[in-house]
Write a protein that binds this DNA or RNA. Structure first.
Lengths: 308, 308
DNA sequence: TGATGTTCATAACCCCAGATTATCAAAACT
DNA sequence: AGTTTTGATAATCTGGGGTTATGAACATCA
């Protein structure tokens, strides 16, 4: 058998985690798989690379030497991938992550625009909560992702796409009553107990809690929706009120007529949706190109220029 | 799927052969296997690497770029293998090629000596004619080989092991008759028609023809042995005479008592057996160590110091 | 111009490398 | 001693990558 990139990448993971189990998790395999690959690398090279005498994993001198080479090799591999993959702009396969509170609204508008730009583009979408999207991005499973920025993860490049205002959503009656008073509501004055939120892990829920100055414990924990349409349904049924991102309005208001929205008082709370990618130092023409298309889509969707 | 070293090595072969079939042969796979790997590399990178429009294979600019990276990577891989594999001297797995006119005589003496030196050594032997041995060596399938030197192949390092004299072998009667004359035979005076040789491809046959100043066509082409024991049997049965390497004498003379040998007149014809390896610029302690053991074995076998 | 040969791509099938789950053994805590 | 943690080993299954057979495109030649 021959030495493989797989073995080298496992070695790197092991050297950095100093633990077989964690290293295995990092490269998304089970611990025995990693163990055997390391062992095979060792007898291929005829040398022990890992010092197993001690409890703590440590590299032998030879192991350190191989590790250095492995790092150079994997770096060169990554360089190859990045130089070639995108040098001809936005084409080929593109794996894009996107959060659930944006995807169903932005994509129907953005996808036709992408298709218009390049019919050969093979787009693979990955819809998941922010954390999983960013993990996948960090692992190189995704080429880029649409999330709320700043993501607060080092090593990522962020490009703002649009400013997404939050609006108060409630039943028609409640909104009419508020309107009658003639003043626009203030987020921090909302009754936490009547505030409906998305399930845990959705950044929108965190952002809503943030702008309201509330903690999750103060809210109705028995009523958490796993998607915005569900949440809107609950709001319309009079279970409470919530914050809706502007990007969802057209679709949700049409789908749930018993719900109404109204803007908050200035300064209006909002989130910024951006396109992020790993910082690889390569050309980023494709990245800005993709960003432009998505921004244009949001502009069409929001009916105005919401450049963040 | 991920990019692999296999794909990169296939790309290098293809770039150098400029031909799918030949490149496939070079890496010891069939043409479809190489084709699919190249294709997979291409769609992994999202770019055409090979310009197939023309009849002649050519790399696209991207292909050239990837090729450069691939070369760096494979170089680094090889460096890793050579640095680690032998840094602790002669141990671990050792793949050794050896020609058939040396193997059965040298090995029985050399193997115990190797084992004595290091019981952990996992020795894999490959017995084949010179050409195949050198091919395997060049491919990196072998770590070293025992052949007649100079091998005439660039990029190989040669270390002489011993001087192997050729002696005239014939039936007891013939040898007795020659001895009676009181003079030692001269190779170029042998009757080509009575000269028995090994099958084609054995370097010993070429060397015998060389020292006799004869061409193969002049010999009895209907009597070619595929091994020295067979050849000795033919000689003993009175079919003709041949040249035997000194290293084979003890064994063959004992096995075939009806055969006898006598030395040639000075300057005695001979071949030099050497240990060869690829020139990799790494440490060669293991190489000289192995050479020393083999030379000592030959010394024991030939009963004298035959340092070449 | 049709026949033939060369060359790369594709299809169908097969096998082993490498994954998984389950389990063990040894060391490090209670 | 009992429990937990961690890496190694065993048994098993699957997909990547191999092979052979065949197709399609193009060049070459009678």
């Amino acid at each position: 058998m021959n030495i493989t990139l797989r073995q080298l990448s496992y070695l790197i993971a092991l050297a950095e985690e100093r633990h077989f189990g964690r290293a295995a998790a990092r490269v998304h395999v089970t611990q025995p798989a990693l163990s055997t690959q390391i062992r095979e690398l060792e007898d291929r090279l005829g040398t022990a690379l890992i010092d197993r005498t001690d409890r703590a994993i440590r590299l032998t001198p030879a192991g350190q030497d191989v590790l250095d080479g492995a790092r150079r090799i994997m770096g060169e591999v990554e360089r190859i991938e990045n130089r070639t993959r995108w040098q001809q702009g936005l084409s080929g396969r593109l794996k894009l992550g996107i959060i659930p509170t944006v995807a169903p609204y932005l994509l129907p508008v953005a996808l036709p625009r992408l298709r218009m730009r390049d019919v050969t583009l093979d787009l693979r979408l990955f819809e998941a909560k922010t954390e999983r999207v960013l993990d996948a991005l960090g692992d190189g499973e995704l080429d880029a992702a649409v999330v709320a920025i700043p993501a607060g993860v080092p090593g990522l490049v962020e490009q703002p796409l649009f400013r997404d205002r939050f609006l108060l959503a409630a039943s028609r009656g409640s909104v009419a009553r508020l309107n009658a008073r003639g003043e626009r509501p203030v987020p921090s004055n909302l009754n936490p107990n009547a505030l409906l939120l998305l399930d845990e892990g959705h950044c929108l829920a965190d952002q809503a809690l943030d702008v309201c100055g509330t903690r999750r414990e103060a809210t109705r924990v028995d009523l958490r929706a796993s998607s915005l349409p569900t949440l809107c349904g609950m709001v319309a049924a009079g279970f409470g009120q919530t914050l809706l991102p502007e990007i969802s309005l057209a679709k949700e208001c049409a789908a749930v007529p018993e719900m109404d929205v109204m803007p908050f008082a200035d300064p209006e709370p909002h989130r910024v949706i951006g396109l992020v990618r790993r910082d690889l130092g390569g050309t980023d023409a494709w990245f800005t190109e993709l960003g432009d298309i998505l921004a244009a889509a949001s502009e069409q969707l929001l009916g105005h220029d919401a450049a963040a």
